[in-house]
Amino acid sequence: MAEWVEACAVDDVDEEDVIRFDHGGRTFAIYRSPDDRFFATDGFCTHEKAHLADGLVMDEIIECPKHNGRFNYKTGQAKGAPVCVNLKTYAVKVAAGKVMIEID
């Protein structure tokens, strides 16, 4: 059953950046794009268990800090070796200055 969960405050994430959010034994990554929109994906790279929140956000790309694997964080699409498996994305909404993500 999906539920909306408060992940962070809007101001917790800089523009063109990412933070880590842990909930229910799972790890997520919360992104703020250069055009000031919020997105959420699984927190670990699909290649190896590295926290994407330690990586680099460039435009709509998140680059994994371990092996530089790149994903489009808006769609979850893996952009080529060494990442081959897409990243799971989650619906996001902003309400009363809070970033909410829908977790199944």
Binding site: E48, H67, A81, P82
Partner: peptide, 13 residues
Amino acid sequence: PVTWRWSHARHHT
């Protein structure tokens, strides 16, 4: 270029 990209990923892991 393919095998060495992966071997280098392993080298960093």
